[in-house]
C-alpha cells in the first residue's frame, strides 16, 4: 500500500513538473519574441496557470481532497468561493512579506504581485487542494508530527522548498554582475520555481527513504 501511494505521488509530481516545462516551451513556440528574461511575466503567468490547472486536475482525479460532510451544491459553491478568497488573501500576504523583505513598494508593484501569485500557486493552492480551505489544518500540517498522510509530508517538503528557493533567489540581486536575471523579480521567481521542482523531486525520494520512521495517525 505504501509503495502504491508513493508511486502515485511520484507520477503526480512528474506530471506537475512536466507541466512547468511545457509552460516554458509552449509560449516559446506560440508567442513571438518570447524569452524567460525578456517577457518574464508571460512566462511567470504561464507557469503559474499550468501548475494551477494541473494541480487541481491531478488532485481532483486522485480524490485526495478531504471528504466533504455535505454534498450539496451550495456547500460546494461556498467552499469554492472560500478557496478563491483564501488564494487571493495568500497572494496579498506574500506580496506584503516580499515588500517587507525589501522589495520596492510602489514601483514594479505588478512584478512583486506576480511573484506573490507564483508563490501562492506553489504553496497555498496545494494546501487548498489537499487540505481544503481550513487554516487550522494548514497550521497543523506545518508542525513536526502534524502530517497525517504521505500527501501532507509532500506538501511540507514542496512548500518549504519553494519558499526557501524564493528566499535564496534574492541573494544575487545586490551583486554587480549586470546579468539579465538579476532584475527584480526574475531571480526570485526562478528560485521559487527551481525550489518547487526540487521539492517535487525530493518529496517521493525522501518519503521512500524514511518510510520506516513515518507513521501516520489515522484520520
Amino acid at each position: 500500500m505504501w509503495d502504491v501511494e508513493i508511486r502515485g505521488m511520484a507520477s503526480a509530481h512528474a506530471i506537475i513538473a512536466a507541466s512547468i516545462f511545457m509552460a516554458t516551451i509552449m509560449p516559446a513556440v506560440l508567442v513571438e519574441k518570447f524569452s524567460v528574461y525578456g517577457t518574464h511575466l508571460v512566462w511567470l503567468y504561464s507557469v503559474a496557470g499550468s501548475v494551477a490547472v494541473v494541480n487541481i486536475a491531478v488532485f481532483w482525479l486522485l480524490g485526495i481532497s478531504p471528504p466533504t460532510k455535505k454534498n450539496t451544491l451550495s456547500y460546494k459553491l461556498s467552499k469554492l468561493f472560500r478557496s478563491c478568497v483564501y488564494f487571493l488573501l495568500s497572494c496579498l500576504f506574500f506580496h506584503t512579506v516580499v515588500v517587507l523583505y525589501g522589495a520596492p513598494l510602489l514601483e514594479s508593484a505588478l512584478e512583486t504581485f506576480s511573484l506573490a501569485v507564483l508563490l501562492s500557486t506553489f504553496t497555498t493552492l496545494r494546501c487548498l487542494c489537499i487540505l481544503g480551505p481550513n487554516v487550522q489544518a494548514w497550521i497543523r500540517v506545518f508542525s513536526r508530527d502534524g502530517a497525517m498522510s504521505v500527501w501532507d509530508t509532500s506538501l511540507q517538503i514542496t512548500t518549504g522548498c519553494s519558499v526557501v528557493g524564493a528566499w535564496l533567489g534574492a541573494f544575487p540581486i545586490p551583486l554587480d554582475w549586470d546579468r539579465p536575471w538579476q532584475v527584480w523579480p526574475i531571480s526570485c521567481s526562478l528560485g521559487t520555481t527551481i525550489g518547487f521542482l526540487t521539492g517535487l523531486l525530493t518529496a517521493p525520494l525522501w518519503i521512500r527513504w524514511h518510510r520506516k520512521q513515518l507513521t501516520y495517525k489515522l484520520k
Binding site: 523583505y101 506545518f142 508542525s143 513536526r144 508530527d145 528566499w167
Partner: peptide, 19 residues
C-alpha cells in the same frame, strides 16, 4: 535587515514546527 527579518520569521515558524 533582510537577515534580521528572516530570523524574526524563523522563531514563530520554528515554534509552530515544534507544536
Amino acid at each position: 535587515t533582510f537577515l534580521l527579518f528572516t530570523l524574526g520569521l524563523y522563531i514563530p515558524l520554528r515554534l509552530n514546527w515544534d507544536g
